[in-house]
């Protein structure tokens, strides 16, 4: 399914889409792909495959630890394509999330081509602003890939308009001013930001803000088209004593989240 179809069918079921992030190669390539399959089986609609990067300035300690482990294990950028294929094969929609330098180093057009050929739906770029994205916009047009830029509570109205206009697939509302990480208390800036985005675009709005359980997912689902979860999923694997219990914890959390996005109040 394309990203647009994922959101359309979720809307038809009166629910939000569940978008889950895991970095490829954590703790190694094979196990990370197994974990992504687990997420699909448990109900994730879109899987964001993270590209490990040496300087993850937007990520909190949880994701930092995971990508450090992935890099120490020798994970390469090209490993994302195997993960993307596996997710597509398992029946969910694969997207890639990456800091910009690994993509630029790979070659923007080459990356787009490989992503498209492996069945990827698009790319989420947390440190690339649309005004620096000329090359990526051209490549994503050529290979018909979705491109997702981020908006923030501090975005001006003019930037919301121009950023949303540059997006295809959905708009990523990063609703916490701060590095990534699970939070006990959800940000109250999120509903307002989602409303502001909706006012300027017809694209679906995905909200990421440290959701870590089904109850919080339901809360976010009440105003967002997509609920994005990252650190909490990574924690399942990071905190587990062994491989099986990690996969088990991950499965249970995704089931809980999938119920959450269907139980919007």
């Amino acid at each position: 399914m394309s990203v647009r179809e994922v959101f359309a069918s979720a809307a038809a079921e009166h629910r939000s889409a569940l978008i889950g992030y895991l970095p490829v190669g954590f703790p190694n390539v094979a196990e990370s792909i197994a974990a992504m399959r687990t997420m699909v089986a448990a109900g994730a609609d879109i899987v964001e495959v993270g590209v490990p990067y040496s300087d993850p300035v937007i990520d909190g300690p949880t994701i930092q630890s995971a990508v450090e482990i992935a890099l120490r294990a020798g994970t390469r950028v090209r490993d994302v394509f195997a993960a993307v294929e596996a997710i597509a094969e398992a029946g969910a929609t694969p997207m890639v999330m990456s800091y910009w330098n690994p993509i630029e180093r790979y070659g923007v057009a080459e990356f787009a081509r490989a992503l498209s050929f492996s069945g990827g739906a698009g790319l989420i770029t947390p440190d690339l602003l649309p005004e620096e994205a000329t090359e990526w916009i051209a490549a994503s047009d050529k290979y018909q890939l979705d491109r997702v830029f981020l908006v923030a509570p501090s975005s001006t109205q003019a930037r919301l308009v121009s950023t949303a206009a540059a997006c295809r697939g959905f708009v990523y509302a990063a609703s916490v001013m701060g590095a990534t990480g699970a939070r006990d208390q959800l940000s109250n800036a999120a509903p307002a930001l989602a409303r502001r985005v909706r006012a300027v675009t017809d694209l679906p709005v995905g909200v990421g803000l440290g959701v870590s359980n089904g109850k919080q997912a339901a809360q976010v689902a009440s105003y967002a088209d997509g609920v994005i979860v990252g650190s909490a999923l990574v924690s399942c694997l990071l905190d587990a004593s062994d491989r099986d219990s990690g996969q088990q914890a991950l499965h249970e959390l995704v089931v809980d989240l999938a119920e959450g996005v269907r139980a919007r109040p």
């Binding site: 440190d127 602003l129 620096e132 981020l150 509570p153 501090s154 975005s155 001006t156 930037r159 990063a174």
Partner: peptide
Amino acid sequence: RFVPEALVA
């Protein structure tokens, strides 16, 4: 500028 949108303002 290669930064998160949160810093642009």
